[in-house]
Amino acid sequence: MPDATEDWPDQIYGLLKEHDIRQVALVPDAGHSRLIKRCLADNDMRVVTLTTEEEGIGMLFGAWLGGEKGVLLMQSSGVGNCINMLSVPIAHRTPLPMIVTMRGDYGEFNPFQVPMGNATQQVLEAMGTLVKRADAPEDVAPTVNATLRMAFNTYRPTATLIGQRVIGAKTFGK
């Protein structure tokens, strides 16, 4: 059994089940790898690996049209790929919950991750998304729960940003 500081991905999976999430759109991130494995093992979830994150916004809009709930998993760099496409759930007033693992955050090693990581929250908020951060393992589940509830109860894009202090920074051995 993983200890409490490590089982937040399993807690997210439990919340996805509780909210009857059927479509999981993602571009992989190391921070989401355990959650992705749980979703892939679940026959009631359709996991769709995207070529770019904005595809997921279109897909989850289509899912909602057909009566299914979905969630978009991505890394903070992927948020930048989504900017204009956020107009779709805003104009249609449809739910779009996003769970974002942060790069370019605490202790980042790769210079290319910093510009988008530093701008992720501002960019999402500039595009009308409700954003909440989780910077400690025990905050992840309640924050993701709020993100799912606000999306499906109030029909808009919402996001949880999971900080690099939770995930751990990739250091390439440095």
Binding site: L65, N84, M85
Partner: peptide, 15 residues
């Protein structure tokens, strides 16, 4: 939503 029509179709078709 330019560029997303096909993906909307995918989400709808799966649902």
């Amino acid at each position: 939503g330019m560029g997303a029509a096909a993906m909307m179709g995918l989400g709808l078709a799966l649902a």
